[in-house]
C-alpha cells in the first residue's frame, strides 16, 4: 500500500515535471479544416497558427483536416483523419519525446540531422531516424507502413530491424517483424486505399488482427515488467540514501550532507525518475494501442454483429479481445493515472 502511494507520488511528480523540464514545444505553422489540439491536462480546441504542442498533447485532424508542426529542425505534416501525440521517454541518459502516430498518416522532414532525432513510433513499430524525409502510415488494424523519400530510416518491430533507403518502404503488422522491403513508386501510396485494405483484412479475419494486437500488448507488458523491479530496487536505494543523509546532516553537518546529496542522492533520484519515465512510456504506448486500435476494432465488430452476437467470428474475436483487456488491466493500468484517461 505504502509502495503504491509512493509510486503515485513519483508519477504525479513526473507528470508535473515531464511537461516542462525537457519538452521542446512544436509550433503550429499551418492548419486547415478540422484540426484540433488536445492538451495533456484536458480540453480540446481548434488549432490556429502559432499554437504550441507540448509533450503529452495530441493532435487530431478530421476528414478535411491538415496541420504542419515545426519543432527544432523537423517539420511534421499531419494529414487528414490522423491522431498524433508526443510521448516522453529516456534513452542513453537523455530524455526525449517520441513522435507517436496512433492513426492516419504523417510526413517528417528534417532540415538538419544531429544524430539526436526523436524516434517515430506507431502501434506496431519504432523507427530510428537517419533520413531527412519520410512518411509513416498507421492503419485501422494497428499495422503501419514507413516510406523513405531521402536519407535512411531503421524500422524496429518484433525483435527485428530493417534499414530503408530512399524510395523504399516496409509494412509492419503489430507484434510481428517488418515485412518485405518494397520499392516506392512516387505518388503511388494512397493512405485511404491502403487503410481501406487494412480494414477489409480486419473484417475478413478479426481473430488474426486481434491476436496481433495481443502480441503487441504483451511486448509493452514485458517491457514494463522488466523495468518495474529495477524501479523498486532503485527506489529502495534512494529511500535509504535519503535516510542516511538525515543522519549525516545530524552527525557531520550541512556541508557533508550537501556533498552526500550531490554525489549519491541526486544521481539516484535522476536514475529512478528516468525508470519511471520509461515505464510510463510503455504504459502510455499500451494505452494508445488499447484506445485507438483495440477499442475501434471492438466498436466496429460489436455494432456489425449486434443482431447476431453468437456469430463464431465475433465470438472468437471477443475471446482474444477480452484476454488482451485482462492483461492490460492487470499489468498496464497500475502504471496509469486518471489524467491519462
Amino acid at each position: 500500500m505504502i509502495i503504491k502511494v509512493r509510486i503515485e507520488i513519483v508519477i504525479g511528480f513526473f507528470l508535473l515535471v515531464s511537461t516542462t523540464a525537457f519538452s521542446i514545444p512544436s509550433e503550429v505553422v499551418y492548419t486547415e479544416g478540422d484540426a484540433n489540439i488536445h492538451k495533456r491536462n484536458g480540453g480540446d480546441y481548434e488549432a490556429v497558427i502559432g499554437d504550441e504542442v507540448n509533450t503529452g498533447d495530441s493532435v487530431k485532424t478530421g476528414a478535411d483536416g491538415y496541420m504542419e508542426l515545426d519543432r527544432d529542425d523537423v517539420t511534421i505534416k499531419i494529414n487528414p483523419d490522423t491522431v498524433f501525440t508526443l510521448i516522453p521517454r529516456e534513452e542513453d541518459s537523455r530524455k526525449t519525446d517520441v513522435f507517436t502516430l496512433l492513426l492516419g498518416s504523417a510526413s517528417f522532414r528534417y532540415n538538419v540531422l544531429t544524430g539526436r532525432e526523436p524516434p517515430v513510433q506507431t502501434s506496431s513499430l519504432i523507427a530510428g531516424v537517419r533520413g531527412t524525409e519520410f512518411s509513416v502510415l498507421a492503419g485501422f488494424d494497428g499495422s503501419s507502413v514507413v516510406l523513405v523519400k531521402s536519407g535512411e530510416v531503421t524500422v524496429n518491430s518484433g525483435g527485428k530491424a530493417v534499414s530503408l533507403k530512399p524510395q523504399e518502404g516496409v509494412q509492419v503488422n503489430p507484434g510481428e517483424p517488418p515485412g518485405e522491403i518494397f520499392k516506392v513508386l512516387k505518388g503511388k501510396v494512397d493512405y485511404r486505399k491502403w487503410n481501406g485494405e487494412r480494414f477489409k483484412s480486419f473484417i475478413d479475419n478479426p481473430v488474426q488482427a486481434s491476436e496481433r494486437t495481443e502480441k503487441r500488448m504483451a511486448f509493452y507488458i514485458k517491457k514494463i515488467s522488466e523495468l518495474y523491479p529495477v524501479y523498486l530496487k532503485n527506489k529502495k536505494q534512494l529511500d535509504s540514501a535519503r535516510e542516511k543523509n538525515k543522519t549525516i546532516k545530524a552527525e557531520q553537518g550541512i556541508e557533508a550532507s550537501k556533498k552526500y546529496f550531490k554525489d549519491i542522492t541526486a544521481p539516484l533520484s535522476v536514475k529512478t525518475s528516468n525508470i519511471v519515465l520509461n515505464i510510463r512510456y510503455y504504459a502510455l504506448s499500451a494505452l494508445s494501442l488499447r484506445r485507438y486500435i483495440m477499442g475501434r476494432m471492438y466498436l466496429t465488430l460489436k455494432s456489425m454483429y449486434i443482431t447476431n452476437p453468437g456469430n463464431n467470428k465475433y465470438m472468437e474475436f471477443k475471446k482474444v479481445f477480452m484476454r488482451t483487456l485482462k492483461l492490460f488491466e492487470k499489468s498496464v493500468v497500475p502504471q496509469l493515472v486518471e489524467a491519462d484517461i
Binding site: 484506445r291 477499442g295 466498436l299
Partner: peptide, 21 residues
C-alpha cells in the same frame, strides 16, 4: 460497454452499423 470512444467519427460508425445491421 467497457470502451471509451474518443473519435467523433467512430460514433457515426457505431450508429450507422447498428442501424444497417
Amino acid at each position: 460497454d467497457q470502451e471509451i470512444i474518443v473519435l467523433p467519427k467512430d460514433i457515426g460508425t457505431f450508429w450507422t452499423n447498428i442501424v444497417h445491421a
